[in-house]
Nucleic acid binder design. Sequence first.
DNA 1: CAATGTTCTGGGAGCGCTTCCAGAACCGCG
DNA 2: CGCGGTTCTGGAAGCGCTCCCAGAACATTG
Lengths: 338, 338
Amino acid sequence: MVEQSREMPTLDEVARVAGVSRSTASRAINGQVYVSAKAREAVTNAVASLGYSPNLLARSLATKRTNSIALVLSERGDTVLADPFFARVLRGVHAGLSGSGMQLVLLMAQDEQAQGELGQYLCAGHVDGALVVSLHGDDPLPDQLASSGLPVVLLGRPLAKVDVPYVDADNSTGGELAAAHLVERGRRHIATIAGPRDMAAGIDRLSGWRRGMTAAKRRPAGVVHADFTAAGGAAAMRELLAAHPEVDGVFAASDLMAVGAMQVLREAGRRIPQDVAVVGFDDSELAETAVPPLTSVRQPIEEMGRAITLRLIAQINAVADQPSSVLLPTELVPRESS
Amino acid sequence: MVEQSREMPTLDEVARVAGVSRSTASRAINGQVYVSAKAREAVTNAVASLGYSPNLLARSLATKRTNSIALVLSERGDTVLADPFFARVLRGVHAGLSGSGMQLVLLMAQDEQAQGELGQYLCAGHVDGALVVSLHGDDPLPDQLASSGLPVVLLGRPLAKVDVPYVDADNSTGGELAAAHLVERGRRHIATIAGPRDMAAGIDRLSGWRRGMTAAKRRPAGVVHADFTAAGGAAAMRELLAAHPEVDGVFAASDLMAVGAMQVLREAGRRIPQDVAVVGFDDSELAETAVPPLTSVRQPIEEMGRAITLRLIAQINAVADQPSSVLLPTELVPRESS
DNA sequence: CAATGTTCTGGGAGCGCTTCCAGAACCGCG
DNA sequence: CGCGGTTCTGGAAGCGCTCCCAGAACATTG
């Protein structure tokens, strides 16, 4: 059942059919110089007639280049995959990869134990480099990988100061934009549902929002941390309503949390945006389909995925002069919820 | 910049440090029989002290086993990745993979030209098997792969009769359930927004719905095909309203189309579910968050992803007695839209 | 025509691993 | 003590490819 119906032809056979040596066949196939037109043609024909395609494994073993990179989700895979964020990153990575001839290996740390295996797998020469999406900023993996010499680029600012290049959205400015927007909309009691304290995205959005509030000379009307999920956002909103019933503007650090919050607001009889204006973060599809459509801070996730990929490929090819890290701009997309 | 800081130790070095031959070291590492306790311990120590981890490439070359499988998205990658369907499949695949020690390589046919490369890559021995998610039923890829001897399992019934095992949801029964439900809710003029004619999912849901209608002795009050997107669903709904203003029940073959349809209904002043009951398909997150929450036919997507993965692994390991194909049950999840 | 380059070619040594095979070491037994 | 049997070991031959190197073939000069 597992048998490969036809044995794959090898380079030796190609060489034999073409009447040249294996070396010459190899050179012809790889388009190198110093191959006579005659030999090249013979090899080309042999390849075609045999339906030869090189064994990439063997090639990799010889060249120490695998032409594939890993996308590492350093989170429990089942959780992170539920997040549309991930799909968008993947799209960006895919875009960045296209035309490079590289393949993508998807890896997820499913549990503690697998974390070790993962590092081992990555260092065992199966990939040329790794993209690490590590939502929790204190992840040891990036450092571990980088110190083993594997080219690594991070998506998302790491919390610890590690010497690994990263690409992130300008979360801080995004938070600032949200604050400014709510102020501009005439809101007087502005609260925030912040992300987790152990994720850079959570921290930076919150600090940006704080900066925006300070700049507008406003005092925060409540700060509650949640976990970026809809349920978490709902719980946080309940908490906020209880503690600060006067709240009339909320910045949720993710669209998912914003949607959860809107649900709670609706149940509490608050109209959106008349009674309470809501701003989310991500500008995901969810924001567009929400009722009412959600004002949200757009972060260019696909772009980020693309950026880390290009950056990694450049690093693998030892292109010099790479910026160590990049923040991509965020922008506010006003809709009807504010 | 690309240098691997420390050269990876090889099996030879382990053997030398342990004072045994390479063969013995290999046997010890792979836990084979016929290794003396003494030798085994020496090797174990050497491995630990050197920080050795086997080069999987070399191992694969020797064993002709790569311990990785491909997930092939035989659609334009950027499109398919936007679909939450895909994320759920991936989650299922991931679950199915866990504990098997296999890795996942993600492949997408980005364009016509890449389609060929893709097939070549897959057959070039880089993976032990392939999962093919091919939404358009007339995709030539599955057949091509299977005939090259590579173990392949499909997600989604292929349109052409090919000799490749597949796993799909019982779309037909799902459509039937939707019809029966709308009838039971007392709807008299039931229409459907069907999926594309060239996808098995579209065809099967429609035929099931037709069967359900016939069983209830009802005549369809309109059938419009759309493309599974929200915009498509909206356009279809407009068409339906124009042609059949009396419609009071709609089965949309995807949640996305259902949401689009609901938008149009709302704009047309129809109340949901009082004036028009709506049933979707997928039971996605969208169905839960829609306003009003959408009655939908649940298909166990994660389960399907898991099933194809287990099936493929079994096939790779040449486990006999595999059912050729499987339909997983669908069920109706009633919510407030009907 | 010898001398000097410039293409082009095949042999062969790897890459790091598994695995076959033949033989060494050890076991208990008559 | 010799003998068949079991357990263990190292040598060596691959897996399919790349790439170095020495030399062959050919072209170009004085």
